[in-house]
Write a protein that binds this DNA or RNA. Sequence first.
RNA 1: GCUCCCAUCGUCUAGCGGUUAGGACGCGGCCCUCUCAAGGCUGAAACACGGGUUCGAUUCCCGUUGGGAGCGCCA
Length: 513
Amino acid sequence: MAETATSNAPVVRFAPSPTGYLHIGGARTALFNWLYARGRQGKFLLRIEDTDRERNNEQAISAILDGMKWLGLEWDGDAVSQFARADRHREVAAELLRRGAAYRCYASPAEIDAAREKAKAEGRPQIFLSPWRDRDPKDAPNDVKPVVRLKAPREGETVVEDHVQGRVVFPNKDLDDLIILRSDGNPTYNLAVVVDDHDMGITHVVRGADHLTNAARQTQIYQAMGWSIPEFAHVPLIHGADGAKLSKRHGAQGVEEFRAMGYLPAALRNYLVRLGWSHGDDEIISTEDLIRWFDIDDINKSPARLDFKKLDDLNGHYIRNTPDEELVRQVKEMLPHLDFAQLASIAPDPKAPPRADLALAREVQRQLPAIATGIELSERFAAKGWNRFERAIPALKERSKTLTELVNGALFIIAERPIAPDDKAAKLLGSDGRASNGTVLKILSEILDSDWNAAALETRIKSYAETHGLKLGSIAQPLRAALTGRAVSPPVFDVLEVLGRDEALARISASVG
RNA sequence: GCUCCCAUCGUCUAGCGGUUAGGACGCGGCCCUCUCAAGGCUGAAACACGGGUUCGAUUCCCGUUGGGAGCGCCA
């Protein structure tokens, strides 16, 4: 099954375990692999590390596959199941045994624990030196099923030459004889990884820095088998805003959540790749340039923190530069991933940056309490006609950092009469605004015969304001409040046009009467 | 505790012995303006500390401090 690697084109892989979602840190690792392969006519393979049957299931795997596809990281060939290759792993373990490079260890878990506790108490490294390494197997107890351990070198050192970390040296005395086969005969992770990487013809292993010590142990397996060792690149982990390892506490962890929050795949890729990698002062980089420029040798060694503000800014750039019809498509794709009822139940972390999806959920609940999901919201837009939504986009995309913000800003399209004004809009329409209200009303009768498009409406209203010595704001603000129920919206003239004459006039008279 | 890794504005980073230490996000101010944005201009903001090496250290070496990862018959 070795890939026929042409010349020296790299073969890389992304090897997630099926945890139920594609972790944002894993996504970056996958992205690095993908860029590296794509930039060098290499292959980007996908392997699911599903040897732990406990946490393995179909949904968990497809969640990862979906995340990869959404991010645009297409892999070559079929995803490989590590579990399905267990026989081959056992075969290699047997070969290691034959070569005398591995041995059966009959130490009980209790025995091992005790030794570790003792080592810890004495301040020694917590490694277990099995007595069975040198003992005669004939002394083995009959009632204990043995594990198979690698007979790792005790002297010297194991060196990992790493494209990111540099030359990392591990004294062999600190590395114990790792278990390669469990007492039930199943292979362990380190064995499986080495065998699979070797069989798949992997030339470059690019993965999280949490695997650095594994690289040393895996190196010992490669050496015991006489296999050539792949190039390594251990990329630093992504941390939360507070510098600690990214966890649930930090909010989003899975790319599915980033998707639901309204981030564009291209923007997320751009953001992720800049975490630990850069190309001069470049910030917004096309995928083509990323592929051209990316190199594992340029990855930084220090971990980076996730900064949603910067992601938002980048996403805003991408939204502004995405064609309107494409944004409509993206919104339609994104909406089914939103559950407003569920989002509204999330207690917002006061220290965390405001989340656009939570804001949207709150706004939907306020204005359209009957709507509980993104699917229902989507149906509401469809009823009004998506073309109306698309017409609002040029004005909306200028002021949206996420797709959820875009949708939030477009809510006025499907708002139901009478429009429920929020606090600020109510103020504009309240007693203070009564005079203005009258003004708005008067204007209406005069612009009824004007062409119903933004430019004509603007000219008409502006000239009216001028001839009556009124500030535009004194007209536009109450008008905005009447039309959208908010004090903030796209330019009122655009709102008027998108709404259409009948609906706009109906909303105005409803708010006056 | 042991092993390994890291350290430039609040954050992401450029720098690869001699720079007014650059850019981006965020933050402040001004301009634009019907609100909010976007855009333009502008301001504040960093080489963790201590020793070396060197004519000269942000840059090289050592230590301290502070972070992080790993130490499973998990992956």
